[in-house]
Design a protein around this nucleic acid. Structure first.
Lengths: 185, 185
DNA sequence: CGGTGGATTGACGATCGTCAACAAACGTGG
DNA sequence: CCACGTTTGTTGACGATCGTCAATCCACCG
């Protein structure tokens, strides 16, 4: 889709589904930097080459746009400058969001903050989320292990904060309590 | 200096010293999101209000610039679009950097990655860093406690990877080993 | 029906956050 | 220059958390 290091000549606009931004460090370390959802633009050409790879998580539909580089002038041809600023802001917000989530101490706080964040992006109704993100991806995003993610979700389920009716559905039953947990107990 | 939530009508250009970007969440949680150094622009007006506060860490000198909002058109009056793209990219890079550091498992790996990152920004010579960042700030940035930061730095010192000649100086003796530790042992 | 990949659970040991005490550095006023 | 209070750094001890390894279960697909 987009490979880290590729030159910035196209931008993707997500129509539906979830995509992940992945960083492959020189040392082989792999991290999921962000998730992107319907309506997001990714691969904004602030630089000459992409800073991360973009991969489909599930059910991804997107449209590519040819992009002129911001370095050689802003593309005012088909979109207003405001639209570009908004898209850049959206992308940056995604990175700050992960930063804020990872900065919390305790995996439970991070998971709770992540679920709250997700609910703002892909809530269907009544706290029900389209939760088609593998736990391995969640673990990489949250800087922990899949086992710990699983255990933490289980504890939240046992405490009645969330419900997991099916593998790709997750319902937030007690958003208030989730916020308390996100502060670290 | 800049308060989180203020309207974006000024941009700061750092001349010397270190500044920190701080997020105050609604729940009172405080996190240091990024450090900024000489040459950086902060407070870029991608949005109508600032997303974080900016505070001086030490020895900060800066010049304010009145900023037109990107939302209402790019300010091409005194700087090229490329310069703006570069500044935005620099800011975003700082957030991604923290994200990549925090995503690593183990405090030692995070500290090592952070020191490597710092050395790219404020290295003087021979791995010697102007290290006037309180350990409390480091701890908040790294998502850990001041005590653990202190202990980790001590271990690195004992292993001969770094040296701390004075409180505001830190020398990287073995950059290679530091990279190994950043990968998690 | 077997195979495959993800999810789950248990056990164990290392790490790390917390509390507490103390030392060192710094700024202030005398 | 000294006395003092305040901030920051340092160290020890302890308990909870979390990463790892391993085994097992489950959903999905051929």
């Amino acid at each position: 889709m987009i490979e880290q290091g590729d030159s910035c000549d196209q931008t993707l606009e997500i129509r539906s589904g979830i995509a992940r931004a992945v960083d492959y460090s020189a040392d082989g370390y792999r991290q999921i930097l962000a998730f992107f959802f319907a309506g997001d633009f990714i691969g904004l050409p602030l630089c000459s080459s992409h800073r991360y790879s973009v991969e489909a998580v599930r059910g991804l539909r997107f449209v590519p746009h040819a992009s002129q580089r911001l370095q050689t002038g802003f593309p005012v041809h088909d979109s207003e400058p405001e639209a570009i600023a908004k898209a850049i802001w959206q992308e940056e917000k995604a990175f700050i969001a992960r930063s804020l989530i990872l900065g919390r101490v305790g995996v439970q706080a991070r998971v709770a903050a992540f679920l709250t964040y997700l609910s703002q992006r892909l809530e269907l109704a009544d706290g029900m989320l389209d939760f088609s993100i593998p736990q391995g991806d969640m673990a990489s995003y949250l800087g922990t292990s899949p086992e710990t993610v699983c255990r933490t979700l289980r504890r939240l389920r046992d405490e009645g904060v969330i419900a997991v009716p099916s593998r790709d559905r997750l319902q937030i039953l007690n958003a208030c309590q989730l916020n308390v947990l996100a502060e670290g107990e």
